[in-house]
Design a protein around this nucleic acid. Structure first.
Lengths: 245, 245
DNA sequence: AACCAATTCAAACGGTCGTTTGATTTTTGC
DNA sequence: GCAAAAATCAAACGACCGTTTGAATTGGTT
């Protein structure tokens, strides 16, 4: 058994940022090629619908390379999500910390917290060329994937950022009951996720193609307005509709 | 080739509602057993992750029954969605028509339109025992499924209701530009879909289980408050955050 | 009782799946 | 320049996939 197969995760190469010259190209080239091919194909055909033969053919590597470098298809999926999601959620935490430093103890504006949360997603969504947009969409799909392992991974990767932002909102909105706040954050997270993931709904609603459909800055402004209004909505007490006139 | 295999869709049995006695039991029993087993398993393991062998074993029917009664696995999926979605969207159209009749020409309240749209989803979500809740979740998954055929089917099944409601909102909010309205409906649809589909996010946010997490009436009130506020949000003109103090 | 169409059944079809193997090639450290 | 480690490769593994077949069974109609 010459192939190490497992525990190949960052054992060496922890000092890779230096050494800018010599062999800097094919550092983890095969791993990267596999992950990038997987990002594209998983979006097109789903996780189960993408076979390792499709995947390795597109990446231009041998079929056995996935199992050699990642251990299994599932481990590849985990590595794929960690690669982009860990930095993104670290950026979320940093953005919130920056806001709090700037505020110097004063309460944060809810809209500012929302913006700090959604900004990393939209920055990555802007990167259509480098695969960021595709990854954001894949992410939205992963939230509703049946696989228990994948959903557990998503929860794990988001847990820290989710807690930080929940607490920040609690401080910014001390009058809103925690349970009510949880629901609104839930709605907000869903709106963000669905908006960046869905591909056909918008056309269905508008009845025509929107020219600015993919302008991340416009989406960000509109999302921010929508989410802020929803977060700050009056608390529902009793049925208050029915005045249809 | 004794098996009809195709075009078995409602050819006979169009007069099935009458004849309440005699042989009323096994009318379409095998078809129904297959669909109901499929609803449960597709939610647990996904469409591709559910094999016909699993499915027919759970339904207690022969492996060949799916291809005999539906023609193929894909045709089963289509029949499964049509079975619940066609009546649900017909109910949506009827609810909107009822509102307009009651209003007698006067403009509708946006919140009333929203309620009419989300109510059928929540009524089905209430039906946990009969599989309605499971189906609503499966529906949310279908929106983001990679399969082009499935997404096309969803668009087709929703097209009529979507157009009716879009036009109703346009009449109720004549001052809101169509493009802005389309975005907000997009956000609203996403929030509804994600809220009823996701299973883990809420726990992640709240950090604990919510006792009333599945109370459809409470979800409906909270969704309504959130969506109405978002729909009626002030139009974003320029960046208006930044006042972190 | 005999017929016929509808349905169910066990078995098999050709293909594709994720993974493993053992040899071969390439790269690395000395 | 050479031995060890890392990586790539073609080929095969057993398992499972959706679908088809043709015979057996069922149930209703004369």
């Amino acid at each position: 058994m010459p192939a190490p197969q497992k525990d190949r995760r960052g054992a060496l190469r922890t000092i890779s940022p230096e050494r800018p010259e010599k062999a800097a190209r094919p550092e983890h080239e095969t791993r990267t090629r596999i992950i990038e091919a997987a990002e594209a194909l998983f979006m097109l055909h789903g996780f189960e619908g993408t076979s390792l033969r499709m995947l390795t053919a597109r990446a231009g590597v041998n079929l056995a390379a996935v199992n050699y470098h990642f251990g299994s298809k599932d481990a590849l999926i985990e590595a794929l999500f960690r690669r982009r999601l860990d930095p993104m959620n670290a950026e979320r935490a940093a953005g919130l910390a920056r806001l709090e430093t700037e505020a110097g103890g004063r309460p944060l504006a809810p809209a500012a917290i929302i913006r700090a949360f959604i900004a990393p997603s939209l920055r990555m969504f802007e990167d259509a060329r480098g695969g960021g947009r595709n990854f954001i969409r894949l992410l939205g799909r992963a939230y509703t994937d049946p696989s228990r392992g994948l959903r557990a991974l998503m929860g794990q990767l988001y847990a820290d950022a989710m807690t930080r932002y929940r607490d920040a909102f609690r401080r910014a909105l001390p009058g809103l009951p925690h349970e009510e706040l949880s629901w609104r954050l839930y709605f907000m997270f869903g709106t963000l996720s669905y908006t960046l993931t869905a591909t056909d709904t918008m056309q269905l609603i508008a009845g025509s193609k929107q020219a600015d459909r993919y302008d991340a800055r416009l989406i960000e402004q509109r999302l921010l307005a929508f989410l802020t209004a929803g977060l700050l909505a009056a608390e529902p007490r009793e049925n208050k509709v029915r005045q249809a006139a």
